[in-house]
Design a binder for these strands. Structure first.
Length: 543
RNA sequence: GGCCCCUUGGUCAAGCGGUUAAGACGUCGCCCUCUCACGGCGAAAUCAUGGGUUCGAUUCCCGUAGGGGUCACCA
């Protein structure tokens, strides 16, 4: 077989040769220890939390080593591509302060010397390498019928597993030049397959920087390199791009471990050295049966990064929650450095857990509460308003008009050494403080509390005094004494039978009347913000 | 089914041959307090399992089980 002739036959009009390409892509000049990482999503939808998790690792490894973090769009599956997805991805990276050093805007600017950063725009590059491999007899054209989509695959797979044999070598590898010429003459499309030299009996080693040495069966499959539209598969593009673009460490999901042997053979056959690998864990949730399942956009709204924006989570919360998973000493560091910037954390991308973490929104909420509790009322107001402008339009006018009042509400139990921690996302604000905005929920009292509740509220109208917090509470105590409630908690505990209850119980009744709930921030603050008239109005509704 | 990864409390997890097995979230209790919170203190709760190796295994090795991944002209 004349491979040179075959290569020319298959690729008669390639724009570049391999040497021309390698001339153009200079080796990066890096300081010692600098890592080049990349986030390489396929634009098939909105950004997935799991993808974001990886981008976070990518970016931080690069930044903490004074390296380079770049964005490469893997748009080789045009069927699944969703228009505009790549712009959204870049937008999210920007908003979360993970802006890549190199990237490309579709139809716009390119930042960086190693582009194009869209794989479809690199088609000629892959073709050049494919031609080279064919000319060396290391790859061949395949004219077989293609498998189309997942359902096809699943069906095939069932048969294959039943027999227990999966044919690794493709029949087209034995085609004669005449047969190939005939196929071409017939206008048949071809894909390019790797002509694997292995028989699958050997083991190879993968050094994964999280898991250590992994021994796997070598690849022996004639895998597709170029699809019949001459666009590469992930595997081929990975070898070429990460080499040309100078990636030093590939961070990708652990689902790629299984295809590592193929990648190794491709790198070998191309004469490339492999980068370092980190196969990071995927994010999981429990399903109804208690099994772990991958966090998926279809089943879990929080798998879509837009969810956090929509709900009004603070960006820092999402990042810090994820940091907890990446490096669990983060929490300790945060506790010791409550105000420090995230970039000061001694991030260690090579020491991530290899476990499969369950995404825990309760924990996220706690992280978020902690963060927001440190904000000033002004900052909160701005956060709330910005969120509303995007996701709660009906409240924007009000927020602007009554800025002062809203800020005061936000300021209750805030801006003090031990602030209240109840807000973790902006969308909960109006619900949490409904009673400050006119809507008091009705509260189901215990049957035996009902009469006493009315009695207390009726009396309280005469004791209401908001002139100062001290006076306010003196009056409450005065009423307590009159109605037979304990004003001294210790005395109450010692002799509970002497009293109807303590001041706490009394305050609970008042709180319920004013706010419709058993817990709320400082009652006096609430009442004085509401004003005497409104307070009296609410008391009257109950007695 | 083959191959591979993972396995410390409900969850996230420290630990890397000798520890009373950290810490955080959640749960519960107590204390503080002029109310709700905040905060403080405390409790329950974990090394999947069986064999080795060792004076000694959560830590090392092998098997078993469970969970997960993968086996596309998807990434």
């Amino acid at each position: 077989m004349d491979f040179l002739k075959l290569a020319d036959l298959l690729f008669p009009d390639n724009r570049y040769t391999v040497s021309e390409i390698e001339e153009k892509y200079k080796k990066r000049e890096l300081k010692t220890g600098a890592e080049v990482t990349r986030f390489a999503p396929s634009p098939t939808g909105y950004m997935h939390l799991g993808g974001f998790f990886q981008a976070l690792i990518d970016c931080n490894i690069a930044r903490h080593s004074n390296g380079v973090f770049y964005l490469r769009i893997e748009d080789t599956d045009q069927k699944r591509e969703i228009a505009g997805a790549s712009a959204i991805i870049l937008g999210i990276l920007h908003d979360y302060d993970l802006m890549p050093d190199e990237y490309q805007l579709k139809g716009g600017v390119t930042v960086g010397e190693y582009g194009p950063y869209y794989q479809t725009e690199r088609a000629e590059i892959y073709k050049a390498y494919a031609k080279k491999l064919v000319s060396e007899g290391k790859a061949f054209p395949c004219f077989c019928r293609k498998t189309e989509g997942l359902s096809d695959v699943l069906e095939n797979r069932e048969k294959k597993f039943a027999v227990g044999m999966i044919e690794e070598k493709d029949p087209c590898r034995n085609l004669t030049m005449e047969q190939i010429e005939q196929n071409l003459k017939d206008g048949k499309k071809f894909a390019i397959r790797l002509k694997s030299e292995n028989d699958g009996t050997h083991k190879i080693k993968l050094h994964d920087y999280l898991r250590g040495e992994i021994e796997i069966q070598e690849n022996s499959k004639d895998a597709i390199l170029l699809k019949d539209n001459l666009i590469p598969t992930y595997h081929f593009a990975h070898a070429i791009d990460d080499t040309l673009m100078g990636t030093t460490t590939v961070i990708r999901g652990e689902e790629w471990i299984a295809s590592f042997p193929l990648h190794k053979e491709i790198f070998d056959v191309l004469g490339f050295a492999q980068p370092k690998y980190i196969h990071s864990p995927l994010l999981y949730k429990f399903d109804e049966q208690g099994n772990k399942i991958k966090l998926s956009k279809r089943k879990h709204p929080e798998a879509d990064m837009r969810y956090f924006d929509k709900e009004g989570y603070v960006k820092q919360s999402v990042v810090e929650y994820l940091f907890n998973i990446i490096n669990s000493n983060f929490e300790v560091w945060r506790k010791n450095n409550p105000l420090a910037d995230l970039s000061e954390f001694p991030f260690d991308g090579f020491n991530i857990t290899a476990n499969t973490p369950i995404f825990d929104i309760v924990k996220l909420n706690d992280v978020s509460k902690e963060i927001i509790s440190k904000w000033t009322a002004q900052e909160c107001y701005r956060g709330l308003l910005n969120w509303a402008k995007e996701y709660s339009l009906e409240n924007v006018d009000y927020l602007i008009k009554d800025k002062e009042y809203v800020t005061k509400v936000l300021n209750i139990d805030r801006e003090k050494p031990k602030p209240r921690k109840d807000i973790y996302k902006w969308s909960m604000f109006f619900e949490l403080f409904d009673y400050m905005f006119g809507a008091v929920k009705s509260f189901e009292l215990d049957e035996n509390d009902k009469n006493e509740f009315e009695n207390v509220i009726r009396n309280y109208k005469d004791y209401l005094d908001l002139s100062s917090k001290e006076v306010w509470f003196e009056k409450v105590k005065a009423m307590a004494e009159k109605l037979g409630y304990a004003t001294d908690n210790k005395d109450f505990k010692a002799n509970p039978e002497k009293y109807k209850g303590n001041v706490a119980k009394l305050c609970e009744f008042i709180r319920i009347a004013i706010t419709g709930r058993k817990n709320s921030p400082d009652l006096y603050e609430i009442m004085s913000l509401l004003g005497e008239n409104k307070v009296l109005e609410r008391l009257s509704q109950h007695a």
